[in-house]
């Protein structure tokens, strides 16, 4: 469903690669966690997947579509929520949701059903007619999540989704991610909360200094590390 083949990225005239020959695959029905220290290349990788950055080399396929050859078709396959969603401050929440529904061409009945459902889940129904500029960080993130779920994407991509969310919203999001995958779709997300990654991910990739140093299920990672410890301990050992 999401496939990266030998993807590399270098910024400006720096010699060091931010992402170095990264390859992995996210299968249908899978929650895939992407973990790594600060500056390891997680956000850069995600930005290349969602067509915000062009890789220097390598291929990225989303639902079988090459995101460099057919950008528009690839964009229709996923939705993305960044770690700190900057939204149009002067626009009302409801206007933002209508905009997202329009650009993804979601029919009237479906957009209403989905928006009502997710506004209820994330408890922002009362604020939806306010300008986004008046929203707290967490509320902006919730609105961005509702906007991203409006077209029921094949691949749901999130960068640090738990940061800024309250415990209930965090719990609901994990449920949504699982439901999404149970319907044959995929979720790809980066996180620093290793506890969450260990509990909800079907597979995990660990990135360090732009390179994938480990990928697999928790059991596979434990086996390779020769340890039965938590992901946190294995992560600390691998990234030190």
């Amino acid at each position: 469903m999401l496939k990266l083949e030998q993807v590399s990225k270098t910024y400006g005239n720096k010699n060091e690669k931010a992402v170095d020959n990264v390859s992995f695959e996210v299968h249908p029905g899978e929650i895939f966690g992407f973990v790594g220290p600060n500056g390891a290349g997680k956000t850069t990788t995600i930005k290349m997947i969602v067509s915000l950055l062009a890789p220097n080399s390598g291929k990225i396929r989303i639902n079988g579509i090459d995101n460099q050859n057919d950008i528009l078709a690839a964009k229709k396959q996923f939705s993305y929520v960044p770690d700190s969603p900057e939204l149009f401050e002067k626009i009302k929440g409801i206007e933002y949701l209508k905009f997202m529904a329009d650009v993804y061409q979601v029919p009237a009945v479906e957009r209403q059903e989905r928006i009502e459902k997710y506004l209820d889940i994330f408890e922002i129904k009362d604020a939806v007619n306010d300008p986004i500029g008046s929203f707290s960080h967490g509320m902006k993130q919730k609105l961005a999540l509702v906007g991203a779920l409006i077209h029921d994407p094949q691949v749901f991509i999130l960068d640090e989704p738990m940061v800024g969310l309250d415990p209930k919203a965090s719990f609901e999001l994990k449920k949504i991610m699982r439901d999404h995958c149970d319907r044959g779709r995929s979720v790809f997300f980066s996180t620093h909360v290793l506890d969450v990654a260990e509990k909800i991910c079907d597979r995990i990739a660990i990135i360090k200094k732009g390179k994938i140093i480990e990928v697999g299920t928790m059991a596979e990672i434990r086996e390779k590390a020769g340890s039965q410890e938590s992901l946190e301990n294995i992560f600390l050992e691998l990234t030190e």
Binding site: I94, L97, K98, D102, Q105, R111, Q112, V128, N129
Partner: peptide
């Protein structure tokens, strides 16, 4: 809310 969400608009109109 339902009225505000409206019907499907063209991409150019949304922009």
């Amino acid at each position: 809310r339902s009225k505000a969400l409206g019907k499907k608009s063209h991409g150019a109109m949304a922009v």
